[in-house]
Design a protein around this nucleic acid. Structure first.
Lengths: 237, 237
DNA sequence: CCTCGTATAATTGTATACAATCTTACTATT
DNA sequence: AATAGTAAGATTGTATACAATTATACGAGG
């Protein structure tokens, strides 16, 4: 669930705890810390030059973000993502991104729509050039715009959480260029539907966009990467 | 987002932090702490007989659960729920409870199905007797069973978060007996669909169940209670 | 050689001390 | 009287000290 309309965001940049939190999140999402790796308070503290207190508080936040698991009196461990988790997230996101697109059709501002168009235009350029990093960045930003445009702090926050959570996987799988181009075309269709005021269509397209993204991940070896590496409950896909 | 399959739950009962966390959450949800009320570390600590450290850590968790907002160097405040928030949550829940019911149709165990039937049977009894507290309890439990039955830790956790989050409102509005009876009949229909293996129908019914619940809240004065009491962004409903 | 138990070390949990920041009230100046 | 400045108090942020718990290593007994 977490917090919503908070101008002073929880990951506040200016406190030590906030900086530790951001750093650790980044390191986990980027894969610097592997799954099931243990994070020790003193080690992290020394590495970042802070005491245990801010580290501990950052741990509590990371736990609620689902990035680590804290076992009382034992330790903090980077959580693993199973193939089943990824499948579930995309199922949930499919519905919620659809809802988001539907709501955004009524609520989107002129500025947001313009940024969307620019985003798609730029992405096409980078797709042709094969700039994968920029593609990923633009993809993230496209969804962020959509989340902002739905005018629901709660939905926005929920989607952002899920989106961030699968970034770990995405970095390894979206790196195929063919999907990048197809994905951007789907973005364009969604944008066109929103622009035309067709909420139903926008919802369906956003819905489908997630399903396609997931199918592509499966094709490109999601199973091999995250298959049975975990607690052995990777069943579905 | 928060943590998922964690046998050692974050709100661990045996640490001071865990107890403080649970106590504060309970007090916020029950309405003992009013919206926008400031929570001071020392005051809470003295009241519960602990130092500031576990209180601070509990605060971090409450913040990520969306129950309080922490402004750096200033204080912790109980978050307000606007009418718009409630509307958004029910919109989201409508989709996700539908998904949950659909998945549960395939995954539910014999035991879970039996507990569901028993739950509905008991609820009918208490509805006739006008036992509102028990009704609320059984209603919560029904949805918990459904969440467990969908066999998705992620969906289960997400729905539980939203469910808990609206408890604050529910306690004030579901207290009408007529809705209790209707609600229980909807539970029965959902259960029957699941039992019959009709996933599509179960999804639609669960979907509709949420919409009905929300409509009833609006009828029974949600607006009056949570209308403009907040930041003045209660627009939609 | 294996198992159990104990002691020691390592790690987390909590309390307290100190630093930084913000709030409040009072005073001086206009 | 109103306002700005400043100092005192209150509150949060961080560091450190101590307690409790858990993991590890080693040795005794079988």
């Amino acid at each position: 669930m977490t917090n919503y309309d908070n101008k002073y965001d929880a990951n506040d940049k200016y406190s030590l705890r906030g900086r530790v939190f951001q750093k650790l999140r980044e390191d986990i999402l980027s894969g610097k810390f592997k799954e099931h790796e243990e994070l020790k308070e003193v080690a992290i503290g020394e590495e970042l030059g802070v005491s245990r207190t801010p580290v501990r508080e950052a741990f509590r936040q990371l736990e609620l973000e689902g990035l680590i698991q804290i076992i009382p009196n034992k330790g903090a461990y980077v959580t693993g993502i199973t193939a089943k988790d990824v499948k579930d997230i995309y199922m949930i996101r499919s519905l919620l991104e659809g809802l988001c697109a539907r709501l955004a059709t009524d609520k989107i501002t002129k500025e947001q729509l313009e940024e969307m168009e620019e985003n798609i235009y730029l992405a096409e350029f980078h797709a042709q050039k094969g700039h994968l990093d920029q593609m990923a960045e633009l993809d993230n930003r496209f969804h962020d715009i959509l989340y902002e445009a739905c005018d629901s702090k709660l939905l926005e926050h929920t989607l952002r959480d899920f989106h961030r959570y699968v970034l770990r996987v995405r970095q390894k799988t979206l790196a195929t260029n063919t999907r990048g181009l197809a994905s951007n075309n789907e973005h364009r269709q969604i944008m066109e539907a929103i622009k035309a005021g067709d909420a139903e269509l926008a919802e369906q397209l956003a819905n489908r966009h997630m399903i396609n993204a997931y199918d592509n991940m499966v094709k490109n070896g999601l199973k091999e990467i995250y298959g049975e590496s975990d607690e052995g409950n990777a069943e579905g896909q």
